[in-house]
Design a protein around this nucleic acid. Structure first.
Lengths: 125, 125
DNA sequence: TTTTTTTGTATATATAATAGATACAAAATG
DNA sequence: CATTTTGTATCTATTATATATACAAAAAAA
């Protein structure tokens, strides 16, 4: 369970947790039936309050990724295939946001693509 | 004066304004001595409150980019050359954050670069 | 000059989001 | 049983963002 928290990021912590878990679920790194750490344990591992993790889990449950089964712990209930349309839209939205932010220094297209190529493998593997 | 506001973005509006202006100043698109729109005019153009633009201008003044001269309007007082190291670091940080967020759906390098190429011109011009 | 408009500024407020501490009850564990 | 561990609920602190509105000085118009 390798979750990275960036406190400098404008993305709230509960979302960072949620999104990284979601990625692990959709790729099958966390697969159906697997028990995930209790809210308390993960909170303690990450050094955040239990409510922060609880919110991440709660939203993942709402989206059908896992089940918070009473007080029996939490486990993955589905590894949905990402909706291709939604996936495409998401990338577009993230990219627009990203490029807008780069305008603080105004980079050339080539500069940006170069860094993407350099960082991609580092982040993805 | 082409400033884009993304209300969906986690980046606050006043920062979006500030950062895009900063970009224009550093590239010389807005150069020394140029009068920039009044706080009210820009606020009205962008559809935000005057305080939001005022905050952007105020912070740019604090950083030495422009002067809010009493009630005589606002003008650019400097076109600092971006520190190349800082500029490079900034792009790397943004890119890492961006790629980390894309992991919610896991894209190929080519998918990402394709969208970057498609969106770049749209955002930059 | 006098009046009107336009400027940046200050204040007070609404709203929302984030995250935390803490207590609770049900289930699992021993 | 008793204890520990679970998710849940509640209440609160803090901060950030953005707004409306009023103000006074300067500029522009009359």
């Amino acid at each position: 369970m390798n979750i990275l928290i960036d406190t400098e990021s404008p993305i709230p912590v509960y979302q960072q947790i949620k999104n990284q878990l979601k990625g692990m679920i959709m790729t099958g790194e966390l697969s159906k039936g697997v028990k995930i750490p209790s809210i308390r344990d993960l909170a303690s591992m990450l050094g955040v309050s239990i409510n922060t993790v609880a919110r991440a889990y709660y939203e993942l449950e709402k989206e059908g990724f896992l089940k918070l089964d009473g007080r029996r712990g939490s486990e993955i209930v589905d590894n949905p295939k990402p909706d291709e349309n939604q996936k495409k839209e998401f990338l577009i939205k993230l990219t627009e946001e990203y490029l807008l932010r780069t305008k603080e220094f105004l980079y050339t297209k080539d500069e940006i693509i170069k860094v993407i190529k350099e960082k991609y493998d580092e982040i993805y593997y």
